[in-house]
């Protein structure tokens, strides 16, 4: 599936990503966490093809996708809905750009997640959480082999965030799309992902990789289990080490 091989990127003398390698398997949910400013957004720009890598390769199903935009499904931190388009028109935008809008599919998805009644509403009428649902649907409907989610819930309030995590999980467990999920929330990563990749501080490379042992379907209860707490502490420790180093710099 997605295969990142030994990529590096620097902006001028600033090394942002260095010798970073990891893979995402078909139907796998991979979360990436790292200290803030560790080049997580740059990583997505590289995968998304809007910034070239200095060296290394990015393969998707064996094809080199460097410098190619519109290959991955993308969900940004802010909903990024176009205010003058209805919800339905917003959901269809990615396919529209590739001149094959699929209205039926978009409608079916809106129906499935209970947003059908908002089909003809404009984004400003929706709450932040709702807008992010629409943003996620837009990524799904685009029909790309892999979805890249860039801290999608970080701008939401705590309660909405928990709600959204459960919502995303329920949809994902039903459809098993490959997801690469960048977050700075340890709990979020543990609750959602199959595997967690911890990045080092800048220049980013893989520090640790953790396989999340919880069975699916997952429920809210796992958040209170001892294992969850232990893993959380372990991950926290990793991030703390990176932070401490950062202060020494």
């Amino acid at each position: 599936m997605l295969n990142i091989q030994d990529i590096s990127k620097s902006f001028g003398s600033l090394e942002v990503v260095k010798n970073l390698s990891f893979t995402v398997q078909e139907g796998e949910f991979v979360a990436i966490i790292g200290p803030s400013g560790s080049g997580k957004s740059t990583l997505f720009q590289l995968i998304g093809g809007i910034t070239p890598v200095d060296h290394g390769t990015i393969l998707l199903n064996g094809d080199n996708i460097q410098r190619q935009t519109g290959i991955i499904g993308y969900m940004p931190q802010q909903p990024c809905l176009l205010p003058w388009r209805t919800i339905l028109e917003n959901v269809m935008i990615v396919e529209e750009l590739q001149r094959r809008p699929n209205k039926e599919l978009a409608k079916a998805w809106l129906e499935k997640v209970g947003l059908a009644s908002f089909e003809n509403a404009y984004p400003h009428a929706l709450s932040g959480g709702m807008q992010q649902r629409v943003s996620f649907l837009r990524a799904i409907v685009s029909g790309k082999p892999i979805l890249c989610l860039d801290e999608p819930f970080s701008a939401l309030d705590e309660f909405t965030r928990l709600e959204m995590q459960a919502w995303l999980l329920s949809i994902w467990e039903e459809h098993k799309k490959s997801i690469l999920f960048v977050t700075h929330s340890i709990e979020e990563a543990l609750f959602l992902a199959d595997r967690i990749i911890v990045l080092t501080k800048r220049p980013a490379t893989v520090k640790e990789e953790i396989i999340v042992p919880f069975a699916r379907p997952r429920f809210e209860e796992i958040r209170h289990s001892t294992q969850f707490t232990q893993l959380k502490q372990q991950l926290f420790q990793y991030l703390k080490e990176e932070k401490d180093d950062a202060y020494v710099d």
Binding site: G48, G49, T69, Y74, Q77, Q78, C80, L82, I93
Partner: peptide, 11 residues
């Protein structure tokens, strides 16, 4: 943000 989003989706 919107321009960045448009670049990412290959506009």
């Amino acid at each position: 943000e919107l321009k960045h989003y448009f670049a990412m989706i290959g506009a």
